[in-house]
Design a protein around this nucleic acid. Structure first.
Length: 185
DNA sequence: TGGACGATTGACT
DNA sequence: GTCAATCGTCCAA
């Protein structure tokens, strides 16, 4: 995906407003990305910082692939790989807004309301994404990324990333202004 | 080979 | 607001 072959911060901005369509288990779920965080191999907070390994291999694929990892031993988090092939960089999807398939999402999450998709682990659960999807090409089923027109600059807010200790001051988190599905804290 | 530590969540006070 | 759950990965010895 050529439009994602850019630095992580730029990709994180471009992904806001784009859509993800998942057709796992015969159930279609469509969501809109509203919150992202940028990571790359030059960033101490990134999994790619220590070099390529079996775990983070997908982050070094070409732009438009999926990188999934296990967080705290119990949650999956998904990233959209960006930048050139061989350079470890990606964008964490922190929160999305449901567009269709809401009943499927509520069923998978066991909750209703804005808390169904307002966190990275929740996004994976809502879309039905698990570890075996890491390295998947997002231009094909069962999970596809659909590009949408970029949000207006004044609709994008930049802030500090959540839940990290290294390089915590960097403003590499981006979210849509006034969207109710943004994660808390 | 062992131990500390997460790009988190949900339950409970 | 505080805290336990839970396990793959990484680094020290």
């Amino acid at each position: 995906m050529k439009w994602l072959n850019v630095p992580a911060e730029e990709a994180a901005r471009r992904l806001l407003g784009c859509e993800l369509v998942s057709t796992i288990d015969g159930q279609e779920v469509r969501v809109r990305i509203v919150e992202t965080e940028a990571y790359d191999q030059l960033d101490p907070a990134s999994h790619a910082f220590s070099g390529r390994s079996a775990r983070n291999n997908a982050m070094f694929e070409s732009a438009g692939h999926l990188y999934v990892y296990l967080s705290y031993g119990l949650n999956f988090c998904c990233n959209i790989v960006c930048g050139p092939d061989g350079f470890g960089s990606g964008v964490l999807i922190r929160a999305v807004e449901p567009l269709s398939g809401l009943s499927v999402i509520e069923s998978r999450r066991g909750q209703k309301g804005v808390t169904v998709t307002n966190g990275p682990g929740k996004v994976c659960q809502a879309l039905g994404i698990s570890l075996n999807m890491s390295g998947h090409d997002l231009s094909h089923k069962p999970v596809q990324l659909i590009q949408k027109p970029a949000l207006a600059a004044e609709q994008i807010v930049a802030g500090k990333r959540i839940g990290i200790s290294k390089n915590a001051h960097a403003l590499r988190r981006f979210y849509e202004k006034n969207n109710s599905y943004i994660s808390k804290k």
